[in-house]
Design a protein around this nucleic acid. Structure first.
Lengths: 238, 238
DNA sequence: TCAAAAGTGTTCTTATTACACCCATGG
DNA sequence: CCATGGGTGTAATAAGAACACTTTTGA
């Protein structure tokens, strides 16, 4: 610890995995790189962390620069620091994932944002650096979180139908769910409020609209309950 | 991204949360700091990451220097990078937790190791820097992991009794478990092998010894099963 | 009147909980 | 012969899985 100067030579970045949900499809926001290295490839939005800036602050800054959005769900995923992961030197990156409502996304937030595009999670390939590994880690964490914490609602508009919610879960968990069982389970937790409003302008019977109630969730947790939308322990292989 | 020199000024450390289990008690290995800053305080064993060294390599190195042990369970927890967390400059630390068998621990592994001591997790307080927060994060992760992955066995000797295993779970989850239900559940997964050996030298009926079978676990996972020793979703408040 | 998605209950199976007594050993 | 922890089963309850038809709307 005596020769500290030797150690203060690494750079660190944050990379954001920004998830959105649209058209029954889980999406991730990627930026087309406009400069070397890896020019032309799609990459996670990220940036170096400034000297007087906390990691979470940096992640929020990158999020806002890319989407125009602040104050949304943002959680650290994992740190990647393989010696040769970046061609310009020792760069360690801390990854975060965030959940946004695609409708809130502002494509004109910055010149950075204008190079951004939503990609279906299932079709992403050939990202810059080790971003594919970083994305996979974030996606796996999202899968775990969505089962045990009510974070899925962050991806939906404030008013949503139960079918939209189910499709969100199906997209994230990459599985099919039974409509009646799903509704029974989510409604039995008593965290949704029936708004007594109906969808409009759909060419079929309109669905009821619900919202998630944060206050109810706080009481739910305080009462010792645990949010759970897990599948069974034995996944039947078909 | 043009003036990279500005960014290559931070230092990286790893800090290890080394868990052990003894006397029905979950322990963590701490080092008494022999130099400023925070001299005399207990801290997690950690060190700067060397230039050509991966993060996981660094964590393994610290583990070996502290305990004399290599090739054990080691997993990244979280990265802490608040601007003022270290008095000597911008130091970002990546925390890892490892699970070791206390019997394998070699107090004479290094001069570093000789300053180390096992502390009961419930009695730890007043650690150096932000190490208390780091420890808490690691402990929470261990609680989650131990329910869903068969990692608890890393803390027990190769041959153990079911009561030892139960006490391990009780120490980590900080709860009491029902003996019959615990046995039924763990044995029903068919991951333990009854060694047909008995404890010796105990002043009561000797218990049967079991070992965990990695090969069985691989088949279990391949068959689509999920390890689970969760509690119920409603924790009864007494 | 058709197409599309909304909405709704019951039965069966499986998992979880609660609970108490006899057994084997060493001192 | 006593103290200590080892070992065992059952019944009641709760949770999960499978499954099909009627309703409402717009085109």
């Amino acid at each position: 610890m005596t020769d500290l100067g030797n150690y203060f030579k690494a750079a660190f970045t944050v990379d954001n995995i920004i998830f959105g949900f649209d058209d029954d499809d889980l999406k991730v926001l990627l930026i087309k790189r406009g400069e070397e290295p890896e020019i032309g490839k799609w990459a996670l939005p990220g940036h170096f962390v400034h000297q007087g800036e906390d990691l979470l602050q940096a992640a929020n800054r990158v999020l806002e620069e890319t989407t125009g959005i602040k104050n949304v769900y943002l959680e650290q995923v994992k740190t990647f620091g393989t010696v040769d992961r970046h061609p310009l030197g020792r760069v360690i990156t801390v990854s975060y994932y965030s959940l946004i409502k695609i409708a809130d996304y502002n494509v004109n937030a910055s010149s950075f944002a204008r190079k951004a595009k939503w990609h279906s999670i299932s079709k992403v390939k050939d990202l810059a650096f080790d971003h594919e590994e970083i994305l996979n880690n974030g996606f796996q964490l999202l899968k775990r979180r969505v089962r045990r914490r009510p974070v899925g609602f962050e991806l939906l508009p404030p008013k949503f139908t139960l079918t939209e919610l189910q499709h969100l879960y199906e997209a994230i968990l990459e599985t099919d769910l039974d409509k009646r069982n799903f509704r029974k389970k989510i409604l039995s937790m008593n965290l949704l409020v029936d708004l007594n409003e109906l969808q409009e302008g759909v060419a079929h019977r309109p669905a009821r609209l619900y919202k998630f109630d944060q206050e109810k969730y706080r009481n739910f947790v305080a009462g010792g309950y645990i949010f759970d939308l897990s599948e069974s322990k034995k996944k039947v292989v078909k």
